[in-house]
């Protein structure tokens, strides 16, 4: 599961282009700073953590299934 800290996000979309599984797409919600936050598609996610690692704002936390 991918948790996106909405108000840390700057809408750079690096997570979107780095997700091999298309589990992150451009969203429709804007955060308090006006950035468009990505939308998460749980079904496609494999918890590979690439989004967590690439995010320049450390806004993403990947929680593996067995940690929930």
């Amino acid at each position: 599961m991918v948790d996106i800290d909405k108000n840390q996000c700057k809408g750079c979309e690096l997570c979107i282009i780095n997700c091999k599984f298309e589990a992150l797409v451009r969203g429709t919600e804007r955060n308090s700073k006006g950035y468009i936050v990505p939308a998460y598609i749980a079904d496609k996610c494999t918890s590979c953590k690439m989004c967590e690692f690439i995010c320049p704002d450390l806004a993403i936390t990947v929680i593996k299934e067995n940690e929930l």
Binding site: E13, P56, D57, L58
Partner: peptide
């Protein structure tokens, strides 16, 4: 914020000065 950020970043210094998509943030 991811757990390492919560643990190791200096709150008083945030937010970072990095632009959206800056590679330095990934570093």
């Amino acid at each position: 914020m991811n757990p390492l950020g919560k643990k190791y970043l200096r709150k008083e210094a945030l937010p970072t000065i990095f632009c959206p998509g800056c590679g330095h943030g990934t570093v």
